Amino acid sequence: MSLRPRLLSPLRYKASSTPYWTSVTPKRVRSEWSDDEKPLVFVIIPHFNMGEYRHRTIDSVLASTYSKIEIIVVDDCSTDRHSQSVLDSIGKSSSRVDIHIVRCLANIGLSAARNFGIRKARVKYILTIDVEDMVINDFVEVGVNALEKNTNILS
């Protein structure tokens, strides 16, 4: 028996050029409630000088299969003009979802901006996502269904 270590060959892996979630067909989740009975979910999105990503993030939330969503975009004193114009256009846009723009008086940082938005939301369920995040269209509905069915995890 030889005690020499075996040489390992390098792992060969070629990454795909498209994200995996673009090829996944989401399953339709059946909700047990009518639209009036559904709990409201606030989506908190802190923002600082990342206007080029904002529309993609908000569009992924707007594509949600869950209908009772409101979005709070917390502007952490963005300084670039592009971010400010994107926020202004979002505030004026009309959609099925209410979008609130909350502006901080000073740059307080990502965590504090997120917490500032959370304090503005007085609801049972809050989802926080960052500017570069996207959610699949049944993400909120699956989450709310799971939390409503398993009330013991909310304690």
Results as ranks from 00 to 15, higher is better:
Val86Gln: 08
Ser94Met: 07
Asn115Ser: 12
Asp98Cys: 04
Asn107Gln: 11
Val97His: 01
Gln84Arg: 14
Ser94His: 10
Asp98Met: 07
Asp88Gln: 15
Ile101Lys: 02
Asp88Thr: 15
Asn115Phe: 10
Cys104Phe: 06
Ser94Leu: 07
Gly109Leu: 02
Cys104Ile: 08
His82Val: 14
Ile90His: 05
Ser89Gln: 14
Ser89Ile: 07
Ser111Ile: 12
Ser89Pro: 06
Ile108Arg: 07
Thr79Val: 09
Ser111Arg: 14
Ser85Lys: 12
Asp80Glu: 00
Ser85Trp: 05
Leu105Ser: 14
Gln84Ser: 08
Ser95Trp: 02
Ser95Asn: 10
Arg96Cys: 05
Arg103Phe: 00
Ile101Trp: 03
Ile101Ser: 01
Arg103Lys: 12
Ser95Ile: 04
Ser94Ala: 07
His100Gln: 13
Arg103Gly: 00
Arg103Gln: 06
Arg114His: 08
Ile99Cys: 02
Asp88Lys: 15
Asn115Asp: 15
Ala106Trp: 11
Arg103Asn: 06
Gln84Asp: 06
Ala113Glu: 01
Ile99Arg: 00
Ser85Tyr: 07
Ser89Arg: 15
Arg114Val: 13
Ile101Gln: 01
Arg81Ala: 14
Asp80Cys: 02
Arg114Thr: 15
Asp98Val: 10
Gln84Gly: 02
Asp98Thr: 12
Leu110Gln: 10
Gly91Pro: 08
His82Glu: 09
Lys92Asp: 08
Asn107Val: 05
Ile99His: 00
Asn107Lys: 14
Val102His: 14
Leu110Thr: 10
Ala113Met: 01
Ser94Ile: 11
